[in-house]
Amino acid sequence: MQLIFWYNIAALYPVIAFGLPFGGPSLALGSANVLITPLCAALLGLSLNEAAYMAEIIRGGIGSVDKGQYDAARALGMNGTQLMGLVILPQAMRVVLPPTGNQGISMLKGTSLVSVLAISDLLYSAQIIYSNNYQTIPLLIVASLWYLLMTTILSFFQTKLERRYGRGFDTAPRRSRRSKTRTAS
C-alpha cells in the first residue's frame, strides 16, 4: 500500500514545498510528479516500512540487556556515549542480529513488489521478457532461482555474523561432568 500511496502522492499534494513551517517562506518548490519518481516512491515505501520494523528490533535488543550492565558501567564512570558504545550495543547485537538478518532477507523478497510501479527490478525484467517471448513459467522459475540464490547468500553471511556475536554464549545444553568422563574412556 505504501508503494502505491507514494507513487500517487501527486493526487493529494500536486505541489511539494520545502521551507519553514507555519506559513514561512518556501525554500524549494516543485511538482510532486517530478520530485516523486517511481524509483523515489519505491525507495520511500520500502525504506519507511523497513525503518519501522528495524526501530522495534533495535529497541527490543537494547531492552534485552540486563539493567545491571547499566549500573556497572555508571559505577565505572562511563558517560552515556561510552555506556552505549562499549557496553550496551555490543551485548544487544547478539539479540538484534537474527531478526535484522531476517528483515534484510524479507526486504530483498519485498523488492519484487516494486514491479507494480514499473521499476526495472528482477521480477519486472522477467515480465518484460516473457511478454515478448511468451515463456512465462520458465522465466518466473529463473527469477525465483535468482531470489533463492540471493537469499541463500544473505543467510550464509547472517549465520556467520550470528556466530561471531554469539561467541561466549553457549546455547547447546551442557553435559554433566560424569557423562564427559564416560565418553572419554
Results as ranks from 00 to 15, higher is better:
residue 1 M to R: 13
residue 2 Q to I: 08
residue 2 Q to W: 14
residue 3 L to P: 15
residue 3 L to K: 15
residue 4 I to M: 09
residue 4 I to F: 06
residue 6 W to L: 02
residue 6 W to E: 09
residue 8 N to K: 07
residue 12 L to R: 15
residue 13 Y to L: 15
residue 15 V to Q: 03
residue 16 I to T: 09
residue 17 A to Y: 13
residue 19 G to E: 04
residue 19 G to V: 05
residue 20 L to Y: 15
residue 21 P to I: 03
residue 25 P to N: 11
residue 25 P to L: 11
residue 26 S to T: 14
residue 27 L to G: 08
residue 29 L to P: 13
residue 30 G to N: 07
residue 35 L to C: 01
residue 35 L to N: 00
residue 35 L to K: 01
residue 38 P to E: 14
residue 40 C to A: 11
residue 40 C to R: 01
residue 41 A to K: 13
residue 42 A to F: 04
residue 43 L to E: 07
residue 43 L to T: 02
residue 44 L to Q: 03
residue 46 L to Y: 01
residue 47 S to N: 01
residue 48 L to H: 08
residue 48 L to P: 04
residue 48 L to K: 06
residue 52 A to I: 03
residue 52 A to W: 05
residue 53 Y to L: 02
residue 53 Y to H: 05
residue 55 A to P: 07
residue 56 E to N: 01
residue 57 I to M: 02
residue 58 I to Q: 04
residue 61 G to A: 06
residue 62 I to K: 00
residue 64 S to L: 05
residue 71 D to Q: 12
residue 72 A to Q: 06
residue 77 G to I: 11
residue 80 G to T: 08
residue 82 Q to T: 10
residue 83 L to T: 13
residue 85 G to F: 03
residue 86 L to P: 07
residue 87 V to F: 10
residue 88 I to E: 11
residue 92 A to Q: 06
residue 97 L to P: 05
residue 97 L to V: 07
residue 98 P to C: 01
residue 99 P to C: 00
residue 100 T to Q: 01
residue 102 N to F: 10
residue 103 Q to H: 14
residue 103 Q to K: 14
residue 105 I to V: 02
residue 108 L to W: 09
residue 108 L to H: 13
residue 109 K to T: 02
residue 111 T to D: 03
residue 116 V to K: 03
residue 119 I to H: 12
residue 119 I to E: 15
residue 120 S to C: 09
residue 122 L to P: 13
residue 122 L to V: 15
residue 122 L to D: 15
residue 123 L to Q: 11
residue 124 Y to E: 15
residue 132 N to P: 13
residue 134 Y to P: 10
residue 137 I to A: 13
residue 138 P to V: 06
residue 138 P to I: 00
residue 140 L to A: 12
residue 142 V to E: 05
residue 143 A to S: 00
residue 143 A to W: 11
residue 144 S to M: 11
residue 144 S to E: 08
residue 146 W to D: 04
residue 146 W to S: 12
residue 147 Y to G: 08
residue 149 L to V: 10
residue 149 L to W: 12
residue 150 M to D: 15
residue 151 T to L: 08
residue 153 I to E: 12
residue 154 L to E: 00
residue 155 S to A: 00
residue 163 R to I: 02
residue 163 R to A: 05
residue 164 R to D: 10
residue 165 Y to E: 10
residue 167 R to S: 06
residue 168 G to P: 08
residue 169 F to Q: 04
residue 169 F to M: 00
residue 171 T to W: 07
residue 172 A to G: 01
residue 173 P to R: 13
residue 175 R to K: 11
residue 176 S to Y: 05
residue 176 S to K: 00
residue 177 R to G: 04
residue 179 S to Q: 08
residue 179 S to G: 05
residue 179 S to L: 13
residue 180 K to Y: 04
residue 181 T to N: 14
residue 181 T to E: 14
residue 183 T to W: 11
